[in-house]
Design a protein around this nucleic acid. Structure first.
Lengths: 202, 202
DNA sequence: CCTATCCTACCGACCGGTCGGTAGGTAGCC
DNA sequence: GGCTACCTACCGACCGGTCGGTAGGATAGG
């Protein structure tokens, strides 16, 4: 029956996706072998290849799932907020908390192995990334136009924000001195209000 | 004579370092083979191995040279500036311009292949990176203490700055709409004064 | 209830190819 | 003669991927 097949097969597929994401994340795509993945699941290499097409296709599907996660948990929840300032704040906070709290291995893979994919598969991931950049730039532009932000170049603001966030996984460790909330608030505060004190006499 | 050896050998050594840095940068450390490097120089693999100890040692020396470059062209020129605000601004501008103008391949390798090194060699690179982070944190702390900056966590400020800068090479292309000067100024302005307009009545 | 048929999931063995690295020889300069 | 700089030829390990085969469960006919 179809319902049976939909209960069994996707389970194995999801297991492979999850295990591979973990191992790609730990060792890097190139250094991780298909043997590493199969033996981590208690299967043989051929057993894994029964479920997937190729190592590259496996990587693509991990990244694609990572983009699904991001869009579902961040982008789709904020993209229709009408006020650009509220929208920017919600995006920043949602994105930071996704990285610090959920820590999806798939997103780390996206950030670290973006060059491992070639051709069409890479184009498809890149297009989804670019969609997010355009969204950020549009939001920044609206915010400037509304007069509530200084005339900062929207591309510079968008990439500054992206850089801050995409760097987090390189240094932030949960359970440290900073909580994820503090980090999200701190970064939003820094980006929006800046580091310097307002000159008192202005 | 030693002076001879220091004139001839380092030349070949430097050629290898430079070629390897370029190829590691283009293809990534794992995907770049020693054969790629040797044939790019018109040598055989064994010819290259006459000059170096191992592929990993080669990577270490590239990264080490990248850190030399950074420290010589940025850190050492700003570390003794007494005023913390001037020091931070000079650091930010110097670091950004090093990335956008000089674009040293060795620095890209440092950012992209930091996990490829293991053990002692990795520790040595990490220690030099950490020295820079500590310098940034100290500068931020002094700036807060001087009263000219709002009480932002120095670690958050330091990593936000690092993230913004280390992300640049992923998207910035010289000759585009933004000049390197504009980018350096824009990022410094954004970090220090923030995105939002000052509320007029405050 | 039994048997023949089919299918999914999987395994052991193997392939062509590439990798980092090396042993041993040679050509030319001091 | 000795040293540096290189080359030819090669090694063992490992890679991504495939192939023939099979255990075991579902299905259908009798």
């Amino acid at each position: 029956m179809k319902t049976r097949a939909r209960q069994d097969r996707p389970t194995r597929q999801a297991q492979i996706l999850e295990t591979a994401a973990r191992i790609f994340c730990e060792k890097g795509f190139d250094k991780a072998s298909m043997g590493d993945i199969s033996s981590a699941m208690g299967l043989t290499k051929a057993g894994v290849y029964h479920h997937i097409r190729s190592k590259e296709d496996l990587l693509y599907r991990i990244m694609s799932y990572g983009m699904d996660l991001f869009e579902q948990k961040v982008l789709n929840r904020v993209k229709d907020i009408p006020d650009p300032l509220e929208r920017l704040q919600a995006t920043l906070k949602g994105h930071v908390l996704l990285i610090t709290r959920d820590r999806p291995k798939e997103i780390t893979v996206i950030l670290h192995e973006s060059n491992a994919l070639k051709g069409r598969l890479r184009d498809r991931i890149d297009a989804r990334k670019r969609r997010y950049v355009k969204f950020l730039e549009k939001t920044c532009r609206e915010l400037v136009k509304s007069g509530r932000a200084r005339p900062v170049d929207p591309a510079v603001a968008a990439f500054a924000l992206l850089g801050m966030i995409n760097w987090i996984y390189q240094w932030y460790r949960p359970g440290g001195r900073l909580s994820d909330e503090q980090l999200a608030e701190g970064l939003a505060d820094l980006l929006l209000r800046g580091f310097l004190a307002q000159p008192a006499g202005a």
